[in-house]
Design a protein around this nucleic acid. Structure first.
Lengths: 333, 333
DNA sequence: GACGCCGATGTGAGCGCTAACAATGTGAGC
DNA sequence: GCTCACATTGTTAGCGCTCACATCGGCGTC
């Protein structure tokens, strides 16, 4: 019942199994004619090399493990998909090890599970404070890259340039003529949140503008709605930058309920550019991170580590793009 | 550099490697005292069994392959996450093999890739017509379950009861007093679409009500917007059931632009209950599929096949729930 | 007290592959 | 014609594990 093995192919092609192995791995010193014969035999038998056997002998499988928490959120889901796509192009499979919490124990366990499978490398999507510590106490002998992780830790890191994105968004609102910009943030322990807050503050400060108090949310439309209910009743608020699009959606609804028109009275800018953002009421101006680029960069870093054997420490930042739609206008006079 | 192997543990515990194996696999005939000694040795060395070696000798790894197309969409992403969660509880890892198109060649390739890794079973998320054929021509010797696949094919299948969900949605609108219900559908080649269309038609027919022409969309908010622009200009339209929430979002925006108030003039019901649906303007009444239940059912079916060795043929249907919010009201008089 | 039985443990083989080395064949160079 | 270098192919030995079977005691039984 088991499929054909290398020896079966070898027998059919009239060569040794080692020659079959050489053909499979693109070894140079194989005569063209032999190669063709082997390939014909492979095709005839429908032979597929057994990855498990290869992994056993080489000590590494062509699999990359991804550790992530909530792959239902738009960001992580997009990233995961992009990672999978990119990995496939490089001949790697991806296994997901999702995790209930991003604390030290959970992450260690997920990583250990991946190690048991002898993955070639691990990508940890570790966007929160609590994950940072875990990463420094991991086995050092496996290639590892962090995505959206702690910028201060000495671990290879790829991340969207949150600060730049937030600065762009805030500046965009200031340039539209607003005296200042309010910010509905993500959860306090997320680096993404922190970066976006920093970019927002930076933009306001360098414009010499008063920095209003932070309005803390938690990524969800629900919390955006709650924050929006508050902001809607403050007449001095004319511009809001939310840490993601779903927060913006909640804010938009609250503003709508309070009869505050967007963008005539209040302008709103989001972050993420979820596919539906263009169909919010009104269409949302937002900042689009390039998940494909993040995935590519992560994989490049990982593959470099895998090939060199050295554990790197570089970090890469991917710049996001401001997508201008109709939720921003000049403030009412 | 390689971690400790079974023999290292055996040596430390003063037993044979086979006894270690027995402890690891929970074999009954091991003396308690021996078991403890072995476990102590495992802990001391930080030993992790090499899955690749086990996969090699057993011919099956504790991995489940998932084939899916677009894991960025809310439905597939949720399903994947649920599948991963459930599999982890059963001691299985999940590898994703995403696929550009759901045609026969792409699916076969993805399945073959999984087979090369000797996965224990495969879950194919195959919601479109073109995938159906591929599934009948797959190797029969690997446990396989289809999710949201072709109800007419003789393949194990788990699916959300689209028909029932759509019927509920439509009936809900009829009960609110609407004379009939229009439907913005998903793409024609998706089974989900077909089921929802069927449920909608069924509900209308059994209420003895005229069935209006179908308005075909493609899941996206963009197409919902286009359809909405058309429906907004038809005074006789008072109730719309859209095949998913994003379509509904597009429809809502179009209606808003045309000044048609929801739900005062027109009621709208969606499908999926995306987390933001409660924060649409107005909050969307929708149908919530139970992804966790689908994942559980798929895995149960798969594990049953894995254990029995037989390729099953059962199918399971998971009933969705209507979530009532504010986008539905009685029609204007 | 010899016998058989059963629970606990050890032994040897082999899963399918790659890495290292050995053994050919082939042609250039003298 | 013979040697040497090099390209091509074969041989052997595991990788770390499980499976099938062998072995070893201790127990109850007659």
């Amino acid at each position: 019942m088991r499929g054909p093995a290398m020896t079966d192919v070898a027998r059919l092609a009239g060569v040794s199994h080692q020659t079959v192995s050489r053909v499979l791995n693109g070894h140079p010193n194989v005569r063209e004619q032999t190669r063709l014969r082997v390939q014909a035999a492979i095709a005839e038998l429908g032979y597929r090399p057994n990855r498990a056997a290869r992994a056993l002998v080489t000590g590494r499988s062509q699999v990359i493990g991804v550790v992530a928490q909530n792959t239902t959120l738009y960001g992580p889901a997009s990233l995961l998909a992009a990672l999978e796509q990119t990995a496939a192009e490089e001949g790697f499979a991806v296994t997901v090890g999702s995790v209930r919490d991003l604390d030290r124990v959970s992450i260690s366990e997920a990583v250990e599970r991946h190690l048991a499978h002898r993955v070639a490398g691990i990508v940890v999507i570790a966007p929160v404070e609590s994950a940072g510590e875990a990463l420094e106490h991991l086995p050092k002998d496996v290639p590892l890259v962090t995505v959206d992780g702690d910028p201060r830790r000495p671990v290879p890191l790829v991340t969207v340039d949150q600060v730049a994105g937030a600065r762009d968004a805030t500046q965009h609102l200031l340039e539209a003529g607003h005296r200042t910009v309010w910010h509905v943030s993500g959860p306090a322990d997320w680096f993404d949140s922190a970066g976006r807050i920093e970019g927002w503050r930076e933009a306001l400060r360098s414009a010499g503008v008063e920095v209003p108090p932070l309005v803390p949310g938690d990524w969800s439309a629900a919390s955006g709605y709650r924050c929006g209910q508050m902001l809607a009743r403050m007449p001095e608020v004319t511009a809001i930058f939310t840490a993601n699009d779903h927060l913006a959606l909640g804010v938009l609804r609250a503003l709508h309920e309070y009869g505050r028109r967007v963008p005539d009275e209040i302008s709103v800018v989001g972050f993420d550019d979820v596919p539906e953002a263009a169909y919010f009421i009104p269409p949302l101006t937002t900042v689009r991170p390039d998940f494909a680029a993040v995935a590519q960069a992560s994989l490049d870093l990982l593959l470099a580590q895998i090939e060199s054997g050295a554990v790197g420490e570089s970090r890469q930042t991917v710049a996001p793009t401001l997508i201008s739609r109709q939720s921003v206008a000049a403030p009412p006079r």
